[in-house]
């Protein structure tokens, strides 16, 4: 494919052609199967890299493939499997709900206790605030309790849960080096481990890597950086970072950031 054609395809796909250029290009498309194929593949490439734009309605598939799948979904066999899946899901959710209620009570009790402490003793120290805002359970995770560890990532998370932070860093660094598709969430755990190991600068470096990654969790890095500055008691940087959290379009932890800003001032 020539560069000139590539430029036209890009202009067509990103909508930057004039009405006349577009009409001309579309008439070329009608008569040129090779060009149609190029446009289709470039459209798919663009969509693929833009992970937030999942939209099957814009893509066409082989009708035979679609029909075979649709026929399966309508079959008695599929309906039976779905019914069994629904039944298992109901059993699982019923079993889990009391736990959520229990945890809800614990959380409520913790808030009450914290509220009482604040009322009694006034302004909290940075250390107390860190304890209040840092919640290990809010970190994204791939493993559940009591299960066998299967992947390298899981091993790293498991080490983190066992509070073996040095091991966490070693395993997850290796995981990030080894796999092309390594989940950038690993930077979260490496960063938090460094924070626990009293190496805040390295924690910040790793949160910056998460922040500049393609991960959907990237914006969370700003909040994690706030926690580092909170622990380091660096008020100016903490305020700056909290303001970034508040202004970020993801809104992740923006309310918590507003609250923390009030509490440190």
């Amino acid at each position: 494919m020539e560069e000139e054609i590539y430029l036209k395809i890009e202009a067509y796909l990103n909508g930057s052609m004039t009405a006349d250029q577009k009409a001309l290009f579309e008439s070329e498309l009608k008569n040129n199967a090779e060009l149609r194929e190029e446009v289709a593949v470039h459209k798919s490439i663009n969509l693929h890299f833009n992970t937030r734009s999942w939209d099957t309605s814009t893509n066409s598939f082989n009708p035979k493939d679609k029909q075979a799948l649709e026929a399966y979904f309508k079959s008695d066999e599929a309906i039976e499997i779905e019914n069994k899946l629904v039944k298992a899901r109901t059993v699982f959710i019923k079993k889990k709900k009391p736990n959520f209620f229990k945890y809800g009570l614990v959380v409520a009790a913790s808030f009450l206790l914290l509220f009482s402490l604040v009322t009694l003793y006034g302004k909290k120290s940075y250390n107390e605030l860190f304890e209040q805002y840092y919640n290990e359970n809010e970190l994204p995770s791939f493993t559940t309790r009591g299960t066998q560890i299967n992947s390298d990532f899981d091993k790293g998370i498991n080490a983190f849960k066992k509070q073996d932070y040095t091991k966490t860093v070693t395993i997850l660094k290796e995981y990030l080096n080894q796999y092309k598709d390594a989940n950038p969430i690993a930077y979260t755990y490496i960063g938090m481990s460094y924070l626990q190991l009293n190496q805040p600068e390295l924690a910040l470096t790793n949160f910056d890597k998460l922040l500049t990654s393609e991960s959907i969790d990237a914006p969370k890095a700003l909040w994690y950086k706030s926690l580092v500055y909170l622990k380091m008691e660096e008020k100016i940087k903490l305020e700056e970072t909290l303001n970034l959290v508040i202004r970020h379009p993801s809104q992740y932890k923006s309310e918590a950031a507003k609250k923390m800003l009030k509490e440190i001032n």
């Binding site: 099957t56 309605s57 893509n59 598939f61 082989n62 679609k66 799948l69 649709e70 979904f73 309508k74």
Partner: peptide
């Protein structure tokens, strides 16, 4: 059925 099939492909 169509949604599920589209997504799989």
């Amino acid at each position: 059925e169509t949604d599920n099939s589209n997504f799989i492909l």
